[in-house]
């Protein structure tokens, strides 16, 4: 059976032996665990939530989307919001260390979130910190009349953490 390209880190002989002996037992198990979709569903429970997405800000790729999108095209919205996120993440003015120099340098972008207010809604971009290299943010489109920006901002922060720590 062809298993594709071998992993790039080489295992020792014992590991290779175990691979053939033990792994056969694992066939057939499988339950979905919380991931991108569950996170987006949770975001959509916020009052006034109209649409949400998980976006990579280097490429502009939408990794997951739900609900409506402001211009009727989730992929276009992802590319546009990614450009905003990148600009925010890369500006030296927003990259200043905390006063007193406490904590030392942290991985990931120094910006926590970006909030854009329009006549009809709020657009909240929340950066996601991961233990591997990435440039991901959570995007929420919130109705201006029905949404609660303070609540949404807090919950989005929690969910950005839960997405990668749960």
């Amino acid at each position: 059976m062809y298993h594709g390209k071998l992993p790039e880190l080489l295992p020792d002989a014992g590991t290779l032996r175990n691979l053939w002996v033990t792994a056969v037992r694992d066939v057939g198990r499988g339950v979905r665990v919380p991931g991108i979709d569950e996170c987006l569903l949770e975001v959509m429970r916020l009052p006034g939530a109209r649409g949400a997405a998980v976006v990579d800000w280097t490429s502009g790729l939408a990794l997951g989307t739900t609900g409506e999108s402001p211009n009727g095209d989730h992929e276009a919205t992802a590319a546009e919001t990614a450009e905003v996120a990148r600009m925010a993440a890369e500006q030296p003015a927003f990259a200043l260390p905390p006063p007193g120099g406490a904590g030392g340098p942290r991985p990931g972008p120094p910006v926590e979130d970006v909030i854009i207010t329009t006549h009809t809604g709020y657009h909240v971009l929340r950066f996601v910190e991961t233990a591997f290299d990435s440039s991901v943010f959570l995007y929420l489109w919130l109705d201006r009349a029905e949404g609660n920006l303070a609540l949404a901002r807090l919950r989005l922060g929690e969910m950005a953490e839960r997405l990668v720590l749960a």
């Binding site: 298993h3 992993p7 295992p11 590991t15 290779l16 175990n18 691979l19 053939w20 033990t22 792994a23 056969v24 037992r25 694992d26 066939v27 198990r29 499988g30």
Partner: peptide
């Protein structure tokens, strides 16, 4: 993970 689940493709 590769040892435990590689041959089972999981």
């Amino acid at each position: 993970a590769v040892a435990q689940a590689g041959a089972g493709q999981r």
